[in-house]
Nucleic acid binder design. Structure first.
Lengths: 339, 339
DNA sequence: TTAAATAACGAAATCGGTTTCACGCCAGCT
DNA sequence: AGCTGGCGTGAAACCGATTTCGTTATTTAA
């Protein structure tokens, strides 16, 4: 056993019990807020506990109660998802809420391909009380895990809405509508869009918002102005070049996320045109890139921190035995120079 | 007790023991690779275990061994550190290595102000085998924790090098030297620098690199060309405006990180000058902003994923009873348009 | 005034692995 | 032949908190 002793000092119920002159059972009762204990004794226990610097041994508690006080946060790192600042902020939101409730997030960065990948296996192992999924991995795997009794919350709307999986999401549709309307009502005649991945619900919803904006303003959508990207800077850049070549009169573009909006702008400049003078651009997310880019990107801000917090709250709520409804968070138009 | 039963199925040693016709002790020995067990029996145990879908109960093991198989990853979220993609990637690196060793990272996003903040308290509680600190919080707090027996690894060089705390870092000095040399040897005559926070070692080291580059080329450093920023876009922008006003002949600027490099560029444009034509700019980090910005930012790439991985490896190494040396990771110059 | 109910509390079992200890057995030694 | 030394194994103790189950002591109801 090549192991050094982690010489961290711990006091146990036994010591507190001895010092306070009660049994371990009573110590447990007091420390867990059971009010049926004689006031003086309770006080004695509290005193002893704080004097001895007691800290509960979570492993022991977990073994005894079957609750670990830990929630897995699962991130699919296909290429390198965490390099997107978005997820970092979501993590912060989750962490904040969980920690406030004395629950610890266990980070698992790894693809969750199949039902018997190491992660799935671990999640079933009962070493966490639940799992929050940050990107919709194989949705069916998540389902299977839920089926097996794992408490699950996903961030992002599931494809299969009939499933009763609890989720939280940004109001992508309304946000996209807001963005598109802004372009349409601020002088643009020909507003194109670069969509995200259309196999993802977020991608679909943001496209629907684009449609909805036209509809509510009594305008027709020209299907030729819709180009299907994949959320990436590069895809947006190429698609925009193509769009502009075919439709030189385009004067506004809604990109389904900020990274693509930057790609759009890069393309616009490459064609020798200016943002927003010739082509106005609106993005979606409001991440740092949107703020530091020149010209500043007009975009839809989602409450990312709130998204994480909401997911954590839903998780806690389920763990309390409630059945929270899905939460859809509102968005906000942030005006900068690009539109 | 407002609690639902997490109905996850578990099999225990007892069941395996029964099925294989041995004692629990033997099951434990087999499953932990003790080779002193009769081969046939061992095989029987293995079969039974896999047939029953055994998964070890980490809480039970932790209680028994005193090792939890968990490492805290502590992030100071003063403003909102996680919105910097840098840390997300570090996290991924840590996670990858740890998971491969069946150790789980527990995320703690919270300021670690004092020795008795909730986090410090938790870390002392022994519910993790060690802690990796992502931004150097109050360095003395980390020391105190180490003193109390917590196994500690920090990312970033500590101010107090005499302390024997294990750390990993990027070679900031060499990277900065590389950046500055690139500017000096590609035609720039007046190369300024916007430093990072000089109270941080990374800030100091990158400034030293700037000096070293001049020195090794036999050039004098003009102290007036050094402006002290705080890593932020804004600080760099204001400082650059001031520098350019006072020294119009500046034709190259090394910014101590990418965010500031973008600030520098913003300022340069605002003065009506062009990058790299009039002023060449080099950053440090190579984050997404560097890649998506126009013009592309020439910068120093650090191996961020490797940084996290190295930290995790050092942690594992300490846990094995070894005493790893600090690791300093090399950097690389990435050429784009800005210089 | 007595029986039944209730309150306060401790002894002991429990959660599921790990580890010490002792026992039986066989090989190798004198 | 009689010992010593290992080896393989299981019984049982143990980690620390929780919880059931009784046992007293104190009320309340009859």
């Amino acid at each position: 056993m090549p192991v050094t002793s982690p010489s961290i000092f711990r006091t146990t119920y036994a010591e507190i019990a001895a010092k306070a002159g009660v049994s371990r059972a009573t110590v447990s009762r007091v420390l867990n807020g059971d009010d049926r204990v004689n006031t003086e004794r309770a006080q004695a226990v509290m005193d002893a506990a704080s004097k001895l610097g007691y800290r509960t041994n979570r492993a022991a508690r977990a073994l005894s109660t079957g609750r670990t006080g830990q929630i897995a946060v699962v991130i699919d790192d296909s290429p390198s998802v965490l390099s997107d600042p978005f997820w970092g902020v979501v993590l912060a939101g989750i962490s904040r809420v969980l920690m406030a409730n004395d629950i610890h997030p266990v980070l698992m960065v790894s693809p969750l391909e199949s039902e018997d990948s190491p992660i799935a296996n671990y999640l079933e192992g009962g070493d966490v009380d639940g799992a929050i999924f940050l990107t919709v991995h194989k949705e069916d795997v998540v389902h299977q895990l839920a089926q097996k009794g794992l408490t699950v919350v996903v961030i992002g709307t599931p494809t299969d809405l009939k499933s009763d999986i609890v989720y939280v999401d940004t109001d992508n549709r309304a946000g996209a509508e807001l963005a598109t309307k802004h372009l349409l009502t601020s002088g643009c005649k020909e507003v194109a869009t670069i969509t995200g991945d259309i196999s993802a619900v977020a991608g679909i919803d943001r496209l629907e918002g684009y449609h909805a904006a036209h509809l509510s303003l009594g305008l027709e959508v020209n299907e030729e102005l819709i180009a299907h990207g994949d959320w990436s800077f590069e895809s947006a850049k190429t698609l925009t070049l193509r769009l502009l070549a075919r439709h030189p009169d385009i004067d506004g573009i809604f990109a389904a996320n900020d990274a693509m909006a930057l790609g759009v702008m890069a393309a616009v400049y490459e064609r020798g045109r200016l943002v927003p003078d010739h082509v106005a651009v609106v993005g979606f997310d409001d991440n740092i890139m949107a703020q530091t880019h020149r010209p500043g990107l007009t975009t839809i801000r989602q409450d990312i921190l709130g998204l994480g917090a909401a997911a954590a709250e839903s998780m806690l709520s389920i763990l309390q035995g409630e059945t929270p409804a899905p939460k859809i968070l509102p968005t906000e138009l942030i005006l900068r120079e690009s539109a």
